[in-house]
Structures are given as C-alpha cells and as structure tokens.
Write a protein that binds this DNA or RNA. Structure first.
Length: 730
DNA sequence: ACACTGTGAGTTTTT
DNA sequence: CTCACAGTGT
C-alpha cells in the first residue's frame, strides 16, 4: 500500500481480503501497523464500507491508538469503523438490543469490589462458613467457571463442593439481575446469549460486520472466542493478530488454545508470520528466542533484526534487595549523565510488592519516577464513596451502592437498619432504596434517620436535571458534607484524599465537556469509568522512570529495561512454577519482559531478600540459565557493596570494580555516601550531584541516615537523603 | 455504632 | 514485614 512502509510479510497480511487469517506477530514486529493498514486497504482499495469493519481490542489504549492511526491514514472515512474493546462493543450491542435482552438499557457494570460485596451478602444469606468459602474464593471460582467455559453450571458441577458453588452461583446471578447490574464476565456472556437466542439479531450483525479483526488474539477467553466465532461464521472474514508467546493472562481465563488451534476452528485459515523485529538489538532478541524456545506448547517462530550486535545483557547478582535497588539507580544516573532521559528507563518486576524499595531508593537518589498499577484510582475509598452516590442516582436498584452511600458519611445507620431494610425489600420485592422510602413501619429513631437520607437524595434528584454532571457532583459533595467527613476521619490522609476528590471532579468536568449534547452524562460517565484503567493514562515521554509489573509492560517499549528479582520463587513465582503449563506462562512473561528492551537490558537477582520479614535465599532464576552466556556480561555485588549493605567499612582494594555501569567504572567517589564514612555537609557548601551537577547546600535537616539536605542547582532546588544521594563535596 | 486489636495471608489484573 | 479484615469490647 502506498501509505505504509511494509516488509514482504506485512504486505501479504495487509493485502489479505477474504477468508480467515492468523497473523503471528512477534514482539515489536509492527502488528498495529498491519492491522491499521489493512483497514485502510480494505476501504481504499476494495471499496469495503467503513461501517462494515469491526476491530476488537482488549484495552482502551490499544483501541485509541489504532483509531488514531486509522484516522491518520483515512481521515474522515475512518469514523464509521467500529473499533473498540470487547467489552464496550458488547455493552453497545446490549443497550441497543435491549428489547431482546430483558435487561433494559440502563444496567450498570459491577467491578471486582462490587462483586465481592454481593458475595458478602450471599455468604450471610446462605450462612456459609467464611473460613471455607471466603468471598474471594467464591468470586474467583465462579468467575473462572464463567470465563473458562460457556456453561458455568456444568463447569461447577465437576468441582468439589459443587452443590455449594452451584447454589452460590445461582443466587449471585439472581442478585445481579435484581440490581440491574452485569459483571465483566456477564457483559460478554449476555451478548452471546442474545445472539444465540435471537438468530435474526445475530444475522443482522453478521451481515453488517463482514470484516472482523481481533488484536491480541492470544488473550481471548472462551467467551470472546465464541463471540468472534458467532459473528464471523457466516462470512469467515476473520483476521486475527496475536503472539502465542506473549499469552500471559491464562490465569484470568485467556485460553492459548484459541490461537494454537485457529486453523482447526476456521477451515482454510492461512497463517502469516511476522518475525522481523524493529525494536530490539540482536543480542536482546537472541536472548528472548533462546528463553522462549524452552516452551513446548507453542508455534515455532524466531524473531530477527537487521540491527546486528548490541550491548551485552547485564546480569547483576546483588547482595540483597537494597543493593538491587542501588544498582538500578546508579545505572540510571549514569545513563542520565550520558544524556539519556529518565523516561528511557523502565524497571519491571513480577509482583507489586517489589516496587516499594525501588521506589523509595529512586526517590532518595532524586530520580523522577512513576509507579504504574498497584492501587487503582477508582478503587480508592473516597472515590468509591462519591461514585456510590452517583450510581444510586443513576440506578436506584443498585443495593451495593445504597449500602455504601447510606452510612458514608456516618448517619448512625448500621447493620440493624440494613437488616430491617433487607427484610422489607425481599418481602415486597423492591430495592433497598425503595424500602428506605417505605420504612414507616420501622422504629421511629431508625425511620427518621432513613428519612433524612432519602430526603437528601430526593432533594438532589430534583436538581440533577437542572445542573450539569460536574456542577451536580459538586453540589452533592456539599449536601452530604463530604469534606467535613474526610477531615474528621483519622489519619493524615485528608489532603491526599481531597486531592483525589479534586481529580475525580476534574475527570468529570473533562468528560462532560467532551460529550455531544443531549447525552445522558451520568450514565455515560459511569460506564466510562468502569471500563477504564490507570495504565490507559500512561503517557510516554513524561520524563520519569517507569515502574510496573511485567504484566503491565506488555505492549510497551523502553530504551533500557531492568528486570528485578530474577530469582526462583519470585520469577518464576513459586505460586505458579510447579505445573509445566504454569511454568510456560511464567516463561512467556519473561519473554515479554526481555522484548520490552530496545537497546539495553539488565537482569538482576539478589542473594538475600527480605521476604515477609524473613530472609529468603533464592537461587537465581532458571530463566537466566536459558540465556546463552556469550550474550551476557555478568557482575555481582563486590565485597564493597556487601559491606555497604551491611553498613560496615569496606575494604579498599575491591571497591573500584563495584557497579561498573555502561562500561564505565565507577570509583569510590561516585559511590553513595551510605557506603563511605559519613560525610559532613555544611550550609553554603559547594557540592556536586552525579545527575544534576554542581550546586550549593541550602539546608541540612536531621542526622545520620535520616539526614535530608536541600541543594540549589541554580535552575532548581532539590531535596535529597544525604546518605543515599550520589553527592560529593566539590 | 464504632474503634480497636488480633489474626492470617501475601502473584499477575487488559475489562 | 504490612495490610486487610473480622470479631470483640465499649
């Protein structure tokens, strides 16, 4: 195609028109380019109407990116292409076909937290033994049943304690229906039900979407597979792109069989392999190929690049996790000194718990960084509080939202009142909110408290339509005196929480401004946030080192990548590692990690690691063994670093070989002063920081390892932990 | 109804 | 170690 610069294989894929095709796209092989160019090609050269094309992705970020690129290629013609995530596609169908679903079009989406609350209720109602059937366990098993097979009941029947699970499952589904809510699994399953129960509806969409494309096909679960199968079976124009070697969500129901058996599922399917990589050096690709070749269950392929050679992979054997973090920081500082931007670096790890020490160490070194993942914005308590109110306005049948809202801020309404309302509600077959409105029969004290709440809600309801969503939410916060509640709640978190609320308001405002007129802003907003994640907000080139789990890193690339915790038990994780199938998934995760790196890769393991307050001595990861020695340059914590970690005085003769970064040998004066005998700083003293250059000491606070010094670099003023920062006296 | 305290579990989380 | 949650005590 004239507007894409494509290699031979990419070109074949882009020019494919009819019939099923699997594109096995290795990491960094230009799969997004292939997807977007094919869409453009279909429209421009084959006169396929844009509204006849459906492209499905897993993340909003991927959908946005693809849409952007298709727009760049096609301009306005791109607008009618349906390009969205599986879940938003299904929600659109379900709302549009509400007449056939029996659910109405104002259902809400329940996330994990809401699900757990539902299971809480069920445990109470069925009087289950919480130690045996925790809400977590129930939620996990039942979600798994819904994900893994299309017949959850049948799946659960094979389980131990199947009667309990079946009972819970049925009650759970009944509750969601009552609350007019769908969980993430249901969004897909209900769409499949809709299509199966209404062949004429299915036929309509089959005829509309004659060309279907799926991104990250290796991550599809059985429901997604079934959905795609149904939609594509009439015309068989199914174009899927994926990499079985990057299938890392098996534990969430993704079924690698879908990609491995694509040719069986769709007769006459062709396969095109994209093996030329445009991201990484030869060294990095050789390492990745070598590791992944240890997996049996895969489609054979090998990435290659025209860019021969490259910096050797650094394996570093740290003394402990602190030394690991120090190593990472020093390498980054050295890179920055050589002119790199902080956002060229990423630190990847297997578990979120590992991020903490790296984070604090980066902060101590004064390196700008950003942690992705971990606690999510919309899961924060204060955010969920406000959302509970908004949800209640949108859908008064949402009992989960009601329970949260009614006693936040505290209104003296506790378990006793909730139980009373629950009996009224189940007796009359109404929602808890409706029960609260009809609670005259309850004791006067209770009734008046409930009345006060429903009055506030009804008052606000009247204003809901007069005000925009942003103004309404501000009014809501005022009416319930939320600020006062935050101030009164203990702890020093008031300011952070208030900031979060401000951020929420900001997001509402921004969302509202982007809406076309006459849209139901509240419904649209609630739907939007339930389908959006933090990683969507990852901006590249934000001037910070990125910290994230290996899972979160999929799809991203960085000049230099550090993988921390390359140890047996951590990576591969001991919770996975035993079964061959799970070990293969860990290995794919390692492959994903390695292939994030463009130029430089550091693999780090620690001899000793503080784990759950105990010392662990993990052998280094088997994945390190799977990389040929000649691709690596190994170094380890010298006795100097060990001494530093032990806070002892180092012996002189070995110190100059500690931590040579980017080929440079860092000498004693560059080592952080935590290792050297403590340095005495004075105000107005001239000092030199490894990354920021020369400056003047402004202030010294505290002593010893807690000492903080403030330095004026002329263009900026920064604070450092004196014992960690790479500062020397000039 | 709420605060406090003890217990126990601690992998990953696109939607 | 450190956080979340459930159960107890006021």
């Amino acid at each position: 195609m004239e507007f894409c610069n494509l290699n031979v294989e990419q070109k074949k894929a882009v020019e494919h028109v009819n019939g099923p095709l699997l594109v096995l796209a290795g990491a960094g092989s230009g799969k997004t380019r292939v997807l977007t160019c094919r869409i453009a090609n279909l429209i421009k050269h084959h006169k396929i109407p844009p509204w006849g094309i459906l492209a499905l992705t897993f993340t909003n970020k991927a959908a946005r990116e693809m849409l952007q690129r298709v727009e760049n290629l096609l301009g306005e013609d791109a607008a009618p292409v349906w390009l969205s995530t599986f879940h938003s596609f299904c929600i659109r169908i379900l709302r549009f076909e509400a007449a056939h679903t029996g659910m109405g079009n104002n259902f809400v989406v329940y996330d994990d937290n809401d699900q757990l609350s539902v299971y809480d209720e069920i445990i109470k109602q069925l009087e289950l033994d919480k130690n045996m059937f925790s809400k977590r366990l129930l939620c996990e098993r039942i979600s798994q049943a819904k994900n893994y097979s299309l017949n959850a009941e049948e799946f659960l029947r094979d389980e131990a304690f199947s009667e309990v699970y079946l009972k819970v499952y049925k009650l759970y589904q009944k509750r969601l229906k009552q609350y007019n809510a769908l969980d993430f699994d249901d969004i897909l399953l209900k769409t499949i039900d809709l299509f199966k129960a209404n062949p004429e509806v299915l036929a309509h969409y089959q005829n509309r979407f004659k060309f279907i494309m799926v991104d990250e096909y290796q991550d599809t679960n059985m429901a997604q597979y079934e959905l795609v199968y149904l939609l594509a079976k009439e015309h068989q124009n199914l174009f899927v792109v994926g990499d079985d070697d990057q299938s890392i969500y098996g534990w969430r129901g993704a079924n690698i069989r879908n990609i491995l058996e694509f040719e069986k599922d769709f007769a006459g399917a062709k396969i095109i392999r994209l093996e030329q990589n445009y991201r990484s050096t030869d060294v990095i690709l050789d390492a990745a190929n070598s590791v992944i070749s240890n997996n049996i269950n895969r489609k054979k392929k090998a990435l290659w690049t025209e860019e021969k050679g490259g910096i050797l992979i650094r394996t570093y054997c740290a003394y402990n996790e602190k030394d690991e973090a120090d190593y990472i920081c020093k390498q980054i500082l050295e890179g920055i000194r050589q002119g790199q931007k902080a956002d060229a670096f990423a630190v990847l790890y297997r578990t979120n718990a590992q991020s903490r020490i790296i984070e604090t160490t980066l902060a101590a070194y004064g390196i700008a960084h950003q942690v992705y993942g971990g606690q999510r914005f919309y899961e924060r308590a204060e955010i969920r509080d406000v959302l509970a109110y908004l949800r209640l306005f949108y859908n008064p049948a949402d009992d989960i939202a009601f329970v949260r809202a009614i006693n936040t801020p505290r209104r003296g309404i506790g378990n006793a009142a909730i139980s009373a309302l629950t009996s009224i509600a189940s007796e009359k077959g109404i929602s808890l909110y409706a029960a609260a409105q009809n609670s005259q029969s309850l004791p006067t004290a209770m009734y008046s408290k409930l009345k006060r709440f429903t009055d506030v809600i009804e008052d606000l309801s009247l204003q809901k339509n007069k005000l925009g969503l942003f103004e309404f939410t501000k009014k809501l916060l005022l009416c319930i005196e939320y600020d006062k509640y935050l101030k009164e709640s203990k702890g020093d978190t008031y300011e952070t929480r208030l900031e979060n609320i401000d951020e929420l308001l900001g997001s509402i405002k921004e969302f509202e401004e982007g809406l076309v007129e006459n849209t139901d802003a509240l419904g649209a907003y609630l739907e939007n946030i339930s389908l959006v994640s933090d990683i969507d907000a990852l901006q590249e080139q934000n001037g910070r080192v990125a910290l994230m789990t290996l899972h979160s890193a999929k799809g991203l690339e960085f000049h230099t990548v550090f993988i921390a915790g390359m140890e047996e038990g951590i990576f591969p994780n001991r919770k996975s590692g035993i079964e061959p199938k799970e070990l293969e998934e860990e290995r794919r995760l390692c492959y994903v990690g390695i292939t994030r790196a463009m130029k430089a890769l550091h693999l780090i393991h620690a001899q000793q690691r503080n784990l759950y307050g105990d010392f662990a001595f993990n052998p280094h990861s088997r994945f390190l063994e799977e990389i040929p020695d000649e691709l690596c340059e190994s170094c380890s914590a010298s006795s100097y670093a060990i001494a530093a970690a032990l806070k002892q005085k180092p012996s002189k003769q070995v110190q100059k070989f500690a931590h040579g970064g980017f080929g440079a040998i860092i000498r004693e004066k560059d080592m952080p002063s935590s290792a050297a005998p403590s340095v005495q700083y004075k105000e107005y003293q001239r000092v030199k920081h490894a990354a920021f250059g020369s400056g003047t000491v402004l202030k010294i606070e505290g002593t010893g390892s807690a000492q903080i010094i403030t330095i004026d670099f002329g263009t900026m003023i920064k604070k450092f932990a004196a014992s960690y920062a790479p500062i020397e006296i000039e």
